[in-house]
Amino acid sequence: MTDQRPTSPHIQVYRWQYTMLLSILHRASGIALSIGALVLVAWLLAMAAGPDSYDRMQSLIGSNVGVVMLFGWTWALFYHLLNGLRHLFWDIGMGFELPQAFSTGITVVIGSVILTGASWFIGLSIFGGT
């Protein structure tokens, strides 16, 4: 840094609070989802290209590594969606009081875990995966 412009808050001087982790996770999940979006692009292109490339894509996604990554993206998506809603409510001035910020934060974490579990349970048990 050459000039003396203000910098972001230094995390060393802040008392650690889990809401900080939630905030970091929103950014991390947003970045992870941006990368995951490329898989969606590849999936659609493979589908458009025909059955052979689609099947190859499906087995890639259905591989062990593929499933683990999909699971991670599912959680990232639900977390980012719920916490994004939390952001949007803040933007219209709701939920900004500290107790609410803490309790909605817990709700977001628990909700994202439940939705991820439910999605995979329903997906695998009812629609059967490969």
């Binding site: 059955p51 689609y54 499906q58 933007d91 997906g123 629609f127």
Partner: peptide, 30 residues
Amino acid sequence: RWTAIALVPLIIWFVIGIIAHIGASHVVAM
């Protein structure tokens, strides 16, 4: 913000659709 708001219903629709098409054949997915 407006993309975030638009994404809420669209992503929910998308996730439900994907769940319902796990392991779908090419024809079904198409």
